[in-house]
Design a protein around this nucleic acid. Structure first.
Ligand SMILES: NC(=O)c1ccc[n+]([C@@H]2O[C@H](COP(=O)([O-])OP(=O)(O)OC[C@H]3O[C@@H](n4cnc5c(N)ncnc54)[C@H](O)[C@@H]3O)[C@@H](O)[C@H]2O)c1
Ligand SMILES: NC(=O)c1ccc[n+]([C@@H]2O[C@H](COP(=O)([O-])OP(=O)(O)OC[C@H]3O[C@@H](n4cnc5c(N)ncnc54)[C@H](O)[C@@H]3O)[C@@H](O)[C@H]2O)c1
Lengths: 234, 234
DNA sequence: CAATAATTGTGAAAAATTTCACAGTAAGGA
DNA sequence: TCCTTACTGTGAAATTTTTCACAATTATTG
């Protein structure tokens, strides 16, 4: 009963980002692209990209479809139109990562960061549906003009349950982050993207948490810079 | 001439985040903590944490200090005060990652997101010095009240060079991101944290780029949720 | 003071991931 | 038609990273 549908985490994360890139390249009018070019754009070696892409083939059909197994994802050979066809590659990745049916999301905390996220174009693209945004301040709620439905934070549980919201984006002050996360989890959220500089404790191992930490990024960046410095000066 | 100062990237990134967590625990008044507890807080297995921490010992002193090599980073045994002493552990990690001397940073783009970052408490803590923030809009610059020095974007190169700014945080609209990155690199920046939904092309392999991508995070989260769903339903 | 309990540190084994190297493929000339 | 060129796809090797298992350590309890 071994589920072979799970991708290696590094592959999953690279594909998720590749998916974003492919969308942008399509908007540029491109038709196909080589692993070499993707490698330059993504900063990932080309053979790693090809290997990642090789995971897409596995569960493509239903089962032992037998005949003409050969069809790869990309087109070998030189000249135009060779490489990976943008559209079908994007479709395949989307299917493999479950990015085909839209997910519902909500945003909690409409301060500067929250509003920045509210304004993102991504909500107009149809893949992610921002169906609610919450804040504690009535004032704030009245001032904002947006098509996204706004609610007072006291409505959180009710709205999350009602709309079966899957993903919560947390942009509240650090003091309020843990409590808000608890409420989201309690209301049945399935994933949280946490922007607050706090280490969330989420008991349920069903809930996926991703942290976006400026301090973390700064430290990682600094550490890489430091290693560079060490190499150079000795 | 093998440089053994480079940490495995996963270890480096975990230590960088652990460093942030340790600061918070210290503020809570804690003195020491076990790898087991850290494991719960960080979502990383305890043996991985111990292994990561074991890298700290290597270059601790100057060189072959010989005598009493034994001293580990943490204190074994049960009872209070056992585990890793917060303060010294944090110091050690800081030293190993080069987080001891302050780094200079600048922020480009003072829209909603930029202002959110401008307001972060991290700039008051002394480890990172936000020495300049830029925007194109004179109006915007006049309206903002902050202790951080604000400049018009045309001053970018001059200011970055003058203050030898090491890290640039990019919060401009997507259309302006590549150009701004080019200017930062040209002015001698060493690292970029890019918040714009754009794939930056940076020729110099000296410059470290970290992308913070909401779309990427959403896709990764969705893909994990999808894998969960597959497991469950079969 | 001896036994207990909780904890670190680490070499070695296992597992995961990346890299390699090259056979196979097809477009676009020559 | 036959090279040449620029690709993909992949099994196997190499490398990296994680996991394991347990000896060593020490506060605390009985
Ligand atoms: N990770 C990053 O890159 C990053 C960048 C900037 C800011 N941040 C963090 O994001 C958070 C928001 O930053 P900001 O500048 O927008 O802050 P802000 O103070 O401007 O906004 C916070 C908003 O949350 C609302 N709020 C407070 N408690 C609430 C609750 N319990 N429920 C719902 N809403 C509540 C407030 O009314 C306010 O509108 C902070 O925690 C900040 O540290 C993270
Ligand atoms: N990664 C994330 O999590 C995340 C979240 C929210 C927003 N974003 C992105 O961050 C960026 C900023 O978002 P925002 O809501 O603050 O946008 P915004 O439009 O409110 O602000 C952009 C600011 O940049 C300034 N600007 C424009 N061109 C510039 C230039 N060449 N040099 C200097 N300044 C310039 C504008 O005057 C404006 O003040 C956008 O690209 C947005 O997509 C990312």
């Amino acid at each position: 009963m071994k589920k072979d549908s799970t991708l290696p985490p590094p592959t999953l994360e690279r594909l998720a980002r590749l998916y974003v890139l492919l969308g942008k390249l399509q908007n540029l009018g491109l038709q196909a692209i080589s692993s070499k070019r993707l490698s330059e754009l993504l900063g990932v070696p080309d053979h790693t990209i090809r290997k990642d892409l090789s995971f897409l083939k596995e569960g493509q059909g239903i089962e032992p479809f037998a005949e003409k197994e050969k069809a790869g994802v990309g087109k070998p050979g030189s000249g135009v139109g060779r490489g990976y066809p943008l559209e079908s590659l994007r479709l395949l990745i989307g299917a493999r990562l479950g990015l085909t049916h839209p997910r519902t999301a909500c945003l909690v905390g409409l301060g500067n960061l929250g509003v920045a996220i509210l304004n993102r174009r991504i909500w107009q693209e149809g893949v992610y549906r921002l169906v609610a945004a919450f804040d504690l301040s009535e004032n704030r709620l009245e001032l904002l003009s947006t098509k996204i439905p706004l609610y007072h934070a006291r409505e959180l549980e009710r709205v999350v349950r009602n709309y079966r919201i899957e993903i919560g984006i947390l942009t509240v002050p650090p003091e309020a982050a843990q409590e808000t996360a608890d409420r989201l989890v309690h209301a049945g959220i399935r994933g949280i993207i946490n922007f607050a500089p706090v280490v969330l404790t989420v008991k349920s191992n069903r809930v996926v948490v991703r942290n976006v930490s400026l301090a973390g990024e700064l430290n990682i960046l600094s550490a890489y810079l430091y290693q560079q410095e060490e190499e150079t000066h000795g």
